[in-house]
Amino acid sequence: MSGISPTDLSRRGLLAGSAATAVAVAAPVGTATAQPAKAAAIELLPVRFTVNGKERALSLDPRTTLLDALREHLQLTGTKKGCDHGQCGACTVIVDGVRINACLTLAVMHEGDAITTIEGLGTPDKLHPMQAAFVKHDGFQCGYCTPGQICSAVAVLDEIERGIPSHVQDDLTARPQATNAEMRERMSGNICRCGAYSNIAEAMADVAGAKA
């Protein structure tokens, strides 16, 4: 993915190449020869963090978001880029135990952090209980939002367990319960164009019930 030759202009290659740096996005077509000089002027910054338990060290243009670092530099393409503006939740990852939008944070701000992506939750042979529940309850159709939905769902159950309050809670001093209304409210930052919401809430209820 890193060395794209001009003869290898597949759609995927083109998308990956243009997403890799903001310079490429901003440059009009036909100015490719001006790129190396421009890129050379930017001082790369070192950053170290762990991703799915593995230590990673990168040198990055400071503009690189955590999302682009994961996808384009570490080839962890499970985390998806939807809107790239924090509106859709497709890029949701878990950083130091809490879910965030990987598109709205700079990778260099995460020195020393522990990052968990969908690849770190389970594997095809050993699914995370939430992944298994999404399969069982048909919690997706096209699947593009699913990694973000699952990371978010895992973190939501943890938030409920830790007593983080929500908008649908009547009594702020009571502990929140894993009800359908709570799931729906807490998952509102994850958009699903296929409309799998009710099945996602059921998958979450299944996992929450098994935990209780």
Binding site: G86, T92, N101, P165
Partner: peptide
Amino acid sequence: LTRAIVAGASGQLRNK
């Protein structure tokens, strides 16, 4: 204050 905060943004955004 709690009511106002949890009425805004999404869980992901409020975490950051």
